[in-house]
Nucleic acid binder design. Structure first.
Length: 299
RNA sequence: GCCCAGAUAGCUCAGUCGGUAGAGCAGUAGACUGAAAAUUUACGUGUGGCUGGUUCGAUUCCGGCUCUGGGCA
């Protein structure tokens, strides 16, 4: 069991900068927990650390996957665990930094992705067989009533996946009762950066304008020329999907701002679930020095 | 100056044959085990522009005023 810094927070709050400074001050390396920065060619829209920043501190899991190749939490978990161990073995401090909540879960908890891998064809057939949300939901209830939660009644994607797992042999779905079984490999120093909501939303709006000015439309154009289509999963990323649709730039920019604000809000809500396991720092009222001091104290 | 249309939730608008009003978006709170920047659940009271009149009762009908579009001069 060794110490690992986990640095979370909503998009645009300033995680990248804090992570880099921590890595410099504490002899660390950064393992990204970001589902978009992991893809190559998607630089501006995913707000990747700059080449200069990556020269200052070694980053893992940034720019590592081709947007064409399939990637998911399970793959992330494998790779991230490997890198965390590598960094630790070299006597450096692993700093996991990003905004993808599920990826954090895959490291913080004993999430087991062993058995049935997702089979899109299988799920498609389920959706044909149970062709209304009600029927699909009923099927899930008959297999595992505790898994059939009201919040998911119209969440076809998720219900289909749950049914798939149950039909393929899982007696009941893990993850409802025992998701809180903590991973014993690491002792997490879990930080969440926060900021006044209004300020964050304004920051997001400004950042989107900067991305547009920095050439996001061209980046998307290149991706299209490389053969990527709106249906590709990596192209569902905010900023990419809106521009892939080919709408006027100013209109797309507004949509991107809105989607990013919604995303930030979902992240904030996600991180709340960790309760007392997470230490909050307000970037405006606390600042970097308090974060550094807190980590030093815990190390 | 005249004519027409409009003025209702933060925004765009609907509706009420007269019984004080509801959608979408925005916003807020949640859910979350192979797409997760994904997917999904819940939450809607506002001086109905102002002011007179008719009426048991007006946001609704009538008059005046103000403002905003558009047209004519």
């Amino acid at each position: 069991m060794f110490k690992v810094v986990f640095l979370a927070g909503p998009t645009a709050v300033g995680k990248t900068e804090y992570a880099i400074r921590l890595a410099e001050d504490l002899n660390g390396e950064i393992i990204s927990a970001d589902s978009m920065q992991i893809y190559r060619y998607m630089d501006i829209g995913s707000a990747k650390p700059t080449a200069d920043e990556r020269r200052r501190v070694k980053h893992w899991l940034v720019d590592e996957i081709d947007p064409k190749s399939p990637f998911n939490v399970s793959s992330y978990q494998q790779l991230a665990k490997k890198y965390i161990n590598d960094v630790h073995m070299r006597a450096k401090l692993p700093i996991v930094c990003g905004g993808t909540g599920l990826y954090f879960n895959s490291l913080l908890y004993e999430m087991d992705f062993a058995a049935p891998e997702g089979d899109e064809g299988y799920r498609k057939k389920l959706l044909e067989k149970y062709d209304t949300p009600e029927k699909l939901f009923e099927r899930l209830r008959s297999l595992d009533s505790s898994a059939a939660k009201e919040d998911d009644k119209n969440n076809l994607k998720r219900i289909a996946r749950y049914i798939e797992r149950l039909e393929k042999g899982e007696a009941r779905l893990a993850g409802f009762a025992d998701i809180k079984r903590k991973n014993k490999d690491y002792e997490p120093l879990f930080i969440c950066l926060c900021m006044d909501r209004k300020k964050l939303y304004e920051r997001i709006n400004r950042r989107v304008d900067m991305m547009m000015a920095a050439g996001l439309p061209d980046e998307v154009k290149k991706l299209r020329e490389m053969g990527f289509k709106p249906s590709d999963i990596a192209m569902k990323g905010i900023g990419y999907k809106e521009l892939m649709e080919g709408r006027p730039q100013d209109e797309a920019a507004e949509e991107i701002k809105k989607a990013t604000r919604h995303y930030a809000k979902r992240q904030i809500i996600w991180f709340r679930r960790y309760g007392d396991d997470i230490k909050y720092f307000d970037v405006d009222t606390d600042g970097y020095d308090k974060v550094l001091a807190w980590v030093k104290e815990k190390l």
